[in-house]
């Protein structure tokens, strides 16, 4: 049986390389100032989707991401690795969304896609680490959820069997489709780009990326598979009062760079005498030994 799979992906700032101008005055993230990457656990999610596509021929993998038009980069990246296409959900009205407003907008887009069996996303994104959007989308769509998934073992006869990795060990669960699955980083890493896919989808784009280039525009129009969807709030019939800052119950009160109350640290030279002295001191104070 073939499946329609939606992969939720997020383009995230690489939080491992954060500069001083990373935050805006209102406490939200200045994404423009940071290198943008495919959220790591969303790649684990994509791999699970691509494996299902191999197991169940005829399945279709659609990436869904919310962000500015440049987020089309990760849809293309997903297509290079084997996804069939994708949609960028983009609107100024979504700016400043907390997890609840984000899940509202994404669930509206999922409803518009309509035909789906499994929605798979990473457990959490590295810029927020909240792990909230997956379960919140499930709730908004009235679907069951399986979080902390490590492997989707099967998806037969309207049911999935999933192995989860949680603190206390491993759990294998069965649930009916459709449902939402969020995937851990302990799952298999995503396969690299495929040369054929790269060739095929090199010119894939959202309309706004090629708006001023008639040649590219008509090139894409002739080859439908290169068209990445670009939807705004109106396209998904989103209620604006539930989007962006207005739709976010949580507000950032303040952002601080924490200054630690400095202790009076003792500097120990990297010499035999001083290191031996330190070890002796720690033994004498019963800290070690």
């Amino acid at each position: 049986m073939s499946l329609n799979i939606i992969v939720l992906a997020k383009q995230v700032p690489d939080t491992r390389n954060v500069g001083k101008d990373a935050m805006k005055a209102d406490g939200t993230i200045n994404r423009a100032a940071l290198p943008a990457i495919f959220n790591p656990e969303d790649l684990n999610a994509l791999e699970q989707a691509l494996r299902l596509k191999e197991t169940y021929p005829g399945s279709k993998v659609t990436l869904l991401t919310m962000g500015p038009a440049r987020a089309a980069e990760i849809v293309r990246e997903g297509m290079y690795r084997g996804a069939d296409g994708g949609i960028v959900l983009s609107d100024r009205a979504f700016a400043g969304s907390d997890t609840l407003a984000t899940s509202y907008a994404l669930s509206a887009a999922v409803r518009k896609i309509g035909d789906y069996d499994i929605i798979i996303g990473g457990r959490q994104a590295i810029d927020g680490d909240t792990a909230q959007v997956g379960p919140q989308i499930a709730e908004k769509l009235g679907l069951p959820q399986i979080t902390y998934a490590e492997e989707i073992i099967s998806a037969d006869g309207g049911e999935v069997v999933v192995r989860r990795r949680i603190e206390s060990g491993v759990e294998t669960v069965r649930a009916k489709m459709p449902l939402v699955v969020t995937v851990n980083s302990s799952a298999e890493p995503c396969r690299p780009r495929n040369a054929k896919c790269l060739q095929k989808y090199k010119y894939a784009a959202v309309p706004s990326e090629v708006a001023s280039d008639e040649e590219k525009k008509s090139f894409i129009e002739k080859r439908g598979y290169l068209a990445i969807g670009e939807w705004n709030a109106a396209d998904v019939e989103a209620d604006l009062s539930q989007c962006g800052l207005a739709g976010s119950p949580t507000k950032v009160k303040s952002i601080e760079n924490v200054v630690f109350t400095a202790k009076d640290a003792r500097r120990i030279e990297n010499s035999d005498e001083e290191l031996e002295g330190l070890v002796k001191e720690l033994i004498a104070s019963h800290t070690i030994g």
Binding site: D98, S103, E139, K140, T147, R164
Partner: peptide, 23 residues
């Protein structure tokens, strides 16, 4: 903020439209 609380909290907050802050 365990695999239980982080599975449960978002679902509850979504249904009640109340904010949730993790970790």
């Amino acid at each position: 903020a365990t695999s239980v609380g982080r599975d449960l909290g978002p679902r509850v907050s979504s249904a009640l439209h109340s904010g949730l802050t993790a970790d």
